[in-house]
Design a protein around this nucleic acid. Sequence first.
DNA 1: GCCAACGTTGGC
DNA 2: GCCAACGTTGGC
Length: 151
Amino acid sequence: MRYWLMKSEPSDVSIDDLASMPKQTVAWYGVRNYQARNFMRDQMRVGDQVFFYHSSCEQPGIVGIAEVCKRAYPDATQFDPASKYFDPKATPETPRWFNVDVQFVKKTRLVGIKELRSYPELASLRILQKGSRLSITPVDPAEWKFIMGIL
DNA sequence: GCCAACGTTGGC
DNA sequence: GCCAACGTTGGC
């Protein structure tokens, strides 16, 4: 079982949005970065634990816990010309983009990026590295355990 | 809105 | 295969 951190813009899908979805699950559509795609497609398994992170907003930070509830499958939005995630080079025979589904586990207090940066134990957390923009990153078990301990 | 850091694209 | 130009991310 692996641990992850997944960024979402709350104006798109917030932790509260997830909590109020039917079955409290959501397809993690719209990822258009190969590294992030590969994490979902090749490494994520049902049951993997996820920190839900709000990005590009007033208070960026971890806001909840989710878990992977469905293995990766082709992202439907890549085939939809009306979608902003449409990819003309993708076909159902050779899909380019994949997504998992995640399920709400619980909300946490907001652990802001500034607070995350303040802990030496989290010095190597991927999203805190200079220039890091990946929307999906692995979290080491020790990092996961530490953050769970400060929630 | 700014801008640093990255990723992608496409001409050569 | 190089690399300049362009687009995106995301904290501030």
